[in-house]
């Protein structure tokens, strides 16, 4: 993100550690849930970037993964199922100094929230979107999600799913996202680096993260990914090349790529709005109109 909070006073800033980003309560995720790795990586990346908890707003929807803001020490909004990106857009425009990090699940973001996903990417809102993609609805105890593979047996598809999954990476690229990456919760180090880049990117960044649900998705387990994952950066992938990025993102067989698929610089929504030119965020401005503004309004009506 391009903007930073100005230092509130001249107290020396003591470097924070990942532990300082631990929230009020401990996660109630199942032991072994991939989301632990994601939370851990997010805490590390914020610490390593030197961010302070009050400068960050985490916004989530509903799902196991969407519980993350409660486990993370920052301002947070635990909003409705599927609505995190819309709420986050409003919050980012309301206070463009905040680092707004959106966290959620595959169902939340690509299913019920799919419309917002498309349009938030297109608008290039300066947000970091962290999706814990476990290819299942965890919180509702195991039904297919938009990223579940064909044939997958779940409680809602006891005879196997006959629907093709959505590809978050190619979708995001096609929709105009300017930073599109994939991570794996089992590789916290790699994920931390991706998150740091995403947070620093100016514009809409997506990190779709394989974050296995150990309780309800036995097809796409930690072991499944460990065997298959290759890192794009190890192969000298060109992150300007959206076509190759899409080709590589579509592989979901013996090889599955993680890393940064695509990045470009483009004007952000907030950056394109003259209304945000004053330094003071909209939400902190003094309310009320001045005489000149009032005069112009009334003149138009005469």
């Amino acid at each position: 993100m391009a903007t930073t909070m100005p230092a509130t006073d001249d107290k020396p800033v003591i470097p924070l550690t990942a532990r300082d980003f631990k929230g009020l309560v401990d996660p109630d995720w199942c032991a072994g849930c991939g989301d632990f790795g994601v939370l851990n990586a997010l805490q590390r990346s914020c610490a390593e970037l030197g961010l302070r908890p009050h400068e960050i707003l985490t916004v989530s929807g509903i799902g196991c993964s969407s519980n993350l803001p409660g486990y993370f020490n920052s301002y947070g909004m635990h909003t409705l199922h599927g609505r995190s990106l819309a709420v986050a857009t409003g919050a980012k425009l309301g206070n463009h100094r905040l680092h707004v990090i959106v966290t959620g699940g595959d169902g939340d973001g690509y299913g019920i929230g799919g419309n917002h996903f498309t349009h938030t990417a297109r608008r290039n809102v300066d947000l970091t979107y962290v999706v814990m993609n476990n290819q299942i609805y965890g919180l509702t105890t195991g039904q297919i999600s938009p990223t579940s593979t064909m044939g997958m047996k779940t409680k809602s598809t006891p005879f196997g799913s006959v629907e093709a999954p959505l590809n978050p990476i190619t979708s995001a690229i096609m929709n105009g996202a300017t930073f599109v990456a994939r991570g794996f919760s089992g590789d916290v180090r790699h994920l931390t680096e991706l998150m740091k880049q995403a947070i620093q990117h100016s514009g809409f960044s997506l990190i779709d993260i394989f974050s296995p649900c150990v309780t309800f998705n036995h097809d796409n387990s930690n072991a499944f990914f460990k065997e298959r994952i290759k890192k794009l950066e190890d192969e000298g992938h060109d992150t300007n090349d959206w076509k190759t990025a899409c080709e590589k993102a579509m592989l979901f067989g013996d090889t599955i790529y993680t890393g940064l698929f695509f990045q470009k610089q483009a004007p952000t929504l907030g950056g394109s709005e003259p209304v945000l030119e004053p330094d003071e965020p909209l939400g902190l401005q003094t309310l009320g109109l001045d005489k000149e503004q009032t005069k112009r309004i009334i003149e138009r009506m005469m």
């Binding site: 707003l57 916004v59 909004m77 909003t79 409705l80 609505r83 819309a86 709420v87 986050a88 857009t89 409003g90 919050a91 980012k92 425009l93 309301g94 206070n95 905040l98 419309n115 917002h116 498309t118 349009h119 709005e273 209304v275 945000l276 004053p278 965020p281 909209l282 939400g283 902190l284 401005q285 109109l289 503004q293 112009r296 309004i297």
Partner: peptide
């Protein structure tokens, strides 16, 4: 003229939630 952020959003669900996000920041 008035320094108001005005957005046309993808649907009314987005509208309402965006408004709530902005309201939360003041």
């Amino acid at each position: 003229n008035l320094g108001i952020m005005v957005r046309q959003v993808e649907d009314e669900i987005g509208v309402a939630n965006m408004v709530i996000g902005a309201a939360h920041t003041g």
